[in-house]
Every structure is written in C-alpha cells, then in structure tokens.
Simulated scan of single mutants.
Amino acid sequence: MNKESTITQGQLFFLIIKFEIGVDILSLPYQMHLSSKGGGWISVIIGGILIQLIILMCWLLLRRFPSSSIYQILTRITGSWMGKILTVAYIMYYLLMGTSVLVSAYDVINRWMLQKTPRWAILALILFSSIYLVRENLRTIARVLVLISFLIVPMMFLISYGIKQANLLYLLPLTEAGWPHIIIGSKETLLAMFGFEFILVVFPMVEGKSKGKLKSLLLADGVVVLLYGFTILTCTSVFSPQQLDLMPEPVIYLLRSIPLGTMDRVDFIFLPIWLISIFGSISGYYYAASYGLGYLFKQKNHKQAVPFVVFVSCIIACIPQKREDFDLVGTIANNSAYFFLIALPLLLLILSYIFNKKEEPGT
C-alpha cells in the first residue's frame, strides 16, 4: 500500500472526533432533557461507555483481518454471493448516512440563516465541494478533515460563553427522571455519536499496530463524550426545564442569547463554522460509499464512483418536502445503524471464530 493511501494514528484520532460530533450537537441537550431531565450528562457517559464497547467489538473483528476493509471481510466470511449482497447493503448504508447528515444540515441552515435560498443552491454548495475533496486520495482527504476538526475548538468556545448565565439549580434533582429513563436516554447519545463506522473501511489503511489504532479510537471517543457532556451541562444549566421544553435546538438559542462585543447574532458566527464541520462528515460517508463501489466493480480506486454517489445522494436529499420528511430520513438512517454497526459486525465476529476465519500472514 503506497504512502498516499494511508493515514497516521494521530489523523485517525482527529477524524473520529470530527465524525462523531455532527448535526446532533445542536439538538442533543433537548433530547436529553426530554428523556433524562437534569441527568442528561449521566446518559451521555453511559452512552459513551456503550460506544466504547461497540468500538472494541468492531476492533476485534478488524484485527483478525488487518489488511482488509469491511467489504473484503464480508466476502471472506460469508462467501462471494452473500458478500456482494452485504457489500451493496453497506454501500447503501454509508450513502444513506451521508444523505441524512446532508438533509439535516440543509434543514438547519434553511430555518436559521438562509430562509429564502433555494434548496438546490444550498445542496449544490455542499455537494460540489464534496466531489472535489472525495475524489482525492485518503491522505489528502485526511489532512483536510483534520484541519476541519480544529473548528470544534471555536464551536466549544462559543458554547462555553453560556457558563456566565448558568444556574446550577436547574440541574437538580439529578435523578428526577429516574434511572430507567436516564439509561434509556443513553440511546440518544448512542445515535449522536455514530460516526466511528469510518474505521470499518479505513482500518487497514491506518499505519501502526492494531492496539495503537484501538487506543486512538477509544481516546477520540472519550474526548467526544466530554464535549457532549459539557454542551448538555451548559444548556441545561442556562435554560430552565420549562424553557427547554420549547427549544428543539437549545445550542442555537443559547448562542442567540449571548452578547459578544458588537455581534448581535453570535449564531451567525457559529453556524457557518458548524456547516464546514458537517461538510467533513458528509465527505467521510461519501468516501466510504465510493470506496465500496470501487471494490464491488473492481476499479483501481474510488474516484469514478464519487460522482454517482453524490448524484444519488442529491436525488434522495431533494425528495423530503416537510420537516416530518427530514426527520423520517434521519430515523431510517439511525435505525439502520443498529444493524450495520452492532448486529452485523457482532455476527461476523462470531462466525469468524466458529469457522476459524482469519487472515493468515502474507495473504
């Protein structure tokens, strides 16, 4: 594998942080309030532990095939025909996840900033940029996305301004919702932190030993748990429970309430930064889908598949017409993640042990 087709463990660390912090950072405090009340940050910790266990499970599968992506692993374990069917399914999953992020990003930008801008203009801005980036080799993509990941710093800096208005009494009692609801609320964190599935495709392209890759993954996930927990604590301590009941996107309301020098609308600073960050997540999903298509049709690389992936994603993104339709796309994508990130990798791991399927040295 040539140098341009690999990334370092440090780059993997930043990529996972970038992919796990997505659209849901705007609405997660609201979702946590509905399910866990003041104990939302506890739900985040529980969800983070669950994500760590899922990552560990995926790593156990990937380390048995250190030079194979999920697409090659499917063929090795299930055979040629079933492997192709599951490969198509994974391609559709990555495409759907990328489209879900695209649709959610459009919905937020359309409602909060560009109400009169046509949908096609907003989508074209993101999609043409995606084609330009995703057609590059993995190392170039990683370098760009690592730079984008640093935009999380100003995002969290702006959110932290809300601490000045915090009232910690809003958090009490911490277990008001009850432990069953707090534990169930961790499901929302689970959905918000999906994004590590990028590793299923690029694992063999990460330099170093398997244990080093695992450390990067777990450390990145731990950082995201802290950032999400901080965001939820800030929002739930600034707004009363009655206010949060009416705020589907508390982070934006928080930013609108913050005076920052001569800026009357701090959210106009935050949202463009957030949109650039979201562009990175979309590009990651498009790369994973394009890589799968390239493998399926035995192409030398993924470049020829990129326009097709972006075109199909654009068509799907243009179908929803109402807010309920946007939510439906996200619901379908999130529910499919349970199968492709938990159920299927676990099944593959079990089968690999039952039938003693693993990659021999030199194969």
Rank of each mutant, 00 (worst) to 15 (best):
residue 144 V to C: 05
residue 333 A to L: 02
residue 206 V to T: 04
residue 243 Q to P: 03
residue 306 V to G: 03
residue 24 D to G: 12
residue 237 S to P: 13
residue 341 L to K: 01
residue 305 A to E: 04
residue 142 A to Q: 04
residue 17 I to G: 03
residue 352 S to L: 13
residue 39 G to H: 09
residue 68 S to N: 15
residue 321 Q to F: 14
residue 268 F to E: 09
residue 22 G to F: 02
residue 342 I to V: 14
residue 238 V to F: 02
residue 176 E to F: 14
residue 39 G to K: 02
residue 145 L to S: 11
residue 202 V to R: 01
residue 194 F to H: 01
residue 363 T to N: 13
residue 235 C to G: 09
residue 115 Q to W: 12
residue 298 K to A: 14
residue 156 M to W: 14
residue 85 I to T: 15
residue 183 I to C: 09
residue 200 L to H: 03
residue 92 M to K: 04
residue 353 Y to F: 15
residue 104 S to G: 12
residue 250 P to Y: 06
residue 198 F to T: 02
residue 77 I to Q: 05
residue 215 K to H: 08
residue 6 T to D: 05
residue 21 I to Q: 05
residue 259 P to N: 02
residue 52 Q to R: 02
residue 281 S to F: 10
residue 63 R to A: 13
residue 222 G to N: 13
residue 344 L to H: 09
residue 309 V to Y: 01
residue 356 N to M: 12
residue 33 H to A: 15
residue 318 C to A: 08
residue 137 N to C: 01
residue 351 L to Q: 11
residue 297 F to T: 12
residue 319 I to A: 02
residue 159 I to R: 03
residue 54 I to P: 00
residue 287 Y to R: 06
residue 300 K to T: 05
residue 70 I to T: 04
residue 70 I to L: 12
residue 318 C to K: 03
residue 132 Y to P: 15
residue 300 K to W: 00
residue 75 T to I: 11
residue 12 L to P: 01
residue 22 G to T: 03
residue 80 S to C: 05
residue 97 M to G: 04
residue 294 G to S: 07
residue 202 V to P: 03
residue 39 G to Y: 02
residue 178 G to H: 10
residue 172 L to T: 14
residue 360 E to M: 12
residue 317 A to W: 00
residue 266 V to A: 10
residue 105 A to K: 00
residue 360 E to P: 01
residue 51 I to L: 15
residue 25 I to A: 11
residue 311 F to R: 03
residue 8 T to L: 05
residue 354 I to T: 09
residue 341 L to C: 11
residue 194 F to D: 04
residue 119 R to T: 10
residue 23 V to A: 06
residue 7 I to Y: 01
residue 348 L to D: 10
residue 290 S to W: 07
residue 43 S to N: 09
residue 180 P to A: 13
residue 291 Y to E: 09
residue 292 G to F: 10
residue 186 S to H: 06
residue 28 L to P: 08
residue 122 I to Q: 00
residue 241 P to C: 07
residue 164 K to P: 10
residue 101 V to H: 00
residue 52 Q to F: 02
residue 185 G to L: 11
residue 253 Y to A: 15
residue 27 S to V: 11
residue 333 A to Y: 00
residue 173 P to V: 04
residue 294 G to M: 05
residue 116 K to S: 12
residue 256 R to Y: 10
residue 248 P to L: 04
residue 97 M to P: 00
residue 163 I to E: 10
residue 220 A to G: 08
residue 76 R to E: 15
residue 251 V to L: 09
residue 229 G to Q: 07
residue 317 A to M: 04
residue 30 Y to C: 07
residue 132 Y to M: 15
residue 107 D to C: 00
residue 84 K to G: 13
residue 224 V to Q: 07
residue 64 R to H: 10
residue 193 M to E: 07
residue 74 L to H: 10
residue 157 F to I: 15
residue 321 Q to G: 14
residue 149 S to I: 07
residue 157 F to R: 04
residue 256 R to V: 11
residue 13 F to S: 02
residue 192 A to L: 09
residue 213 K to N: 03
residue 3 K to Q: 11
residue 96 L to N: 01
residue 245 D to Q: 14
residue 193 M to Q: 08
residue 301 N to D: 15
residue 113 M to Y: 05
residue 71 Y to T: 03
residue 91 I to P: 00
residue 294 G to W: 03
residue 213 K to D: 07
residue 80 S to I: 10
